[in-house]
Amino acid sequence: MLTAYDLRKRYGASTALDGFDLTVAPGEICGLIGHNGAGKSTFVEIVTGLTRPDSGTVTVGGLPPARARHLVGVAPQEIALYAPVTVERNLRLFGGLAGLRGPRLRAAIDDTAAALDLSDVLGKPVGLLSGGQRRRTQAAAAMLHRPPLLLLDEPTTGADPLTRTAVLTLVRDHAATGAAVVYTTHYLPELVELRATLAVCARGRVVARGSQDELLAEHETLDGLYHALAVHHA
Rank of each mutant, 00 (worst) to 15 (best):
A208V: 05
L225K: 03
G73N: 03
E45L: 15
I33T: 01
V171F: 11
D117W: 15
R203A: 13
L162Q: 13
V200F: 06
T221P: 05
S41C: 04
L151D: 10
R146W: 10
H70S: 14
L188A: 09
L116I: 05
G61H: 09
V182P: 01
L151K: 08
L118Y: 05
V126W: 02
P64M: 01
T3R: 14
D6S: 14
T48I: 12
G210T: 03
E220G: 14
V207A: 10
A108H: 00
L144Q: 00
R164P: 06
G34T: 02
T177Q: 07
S211H: 11
L17D: 01
A208R: 04
L32G: 00
L32N: 00
E214W: 07
A159F: 07
G12H: 05
Q133A: 04
H174Y: 09
A140M: 03
V121N: 05
C201H: 04
K9H: 06
A217K: 13
L22Y: 01
G131Y: 02
V44G: 10
Q138A: 07
E214Q: 10
F43S: 03
Q133N: 12
A108F: 00
P161Q: 03
P65F: 06
T137N: 09
G73I: 01
A80S: 14
R10H: 14
L105S: 05
E88S: 10
G96Y: 05
P189N: 11
D153E: 02
K124W: 15
A25P: 12
L222K: 04
E214F: 12
L118W: 00
A68Q: 01
A175N: 07
S14H: 13
G19Q: 07
K124F: 14
D110F: 11
L170A: 12
S119H: 14
D110S: 09
R69G: 12
P189D: 08
D21Y: 06
H70F: 14
D173R: 13
V206H: 02
A142G: 07
L162F: 10
G224M: 14
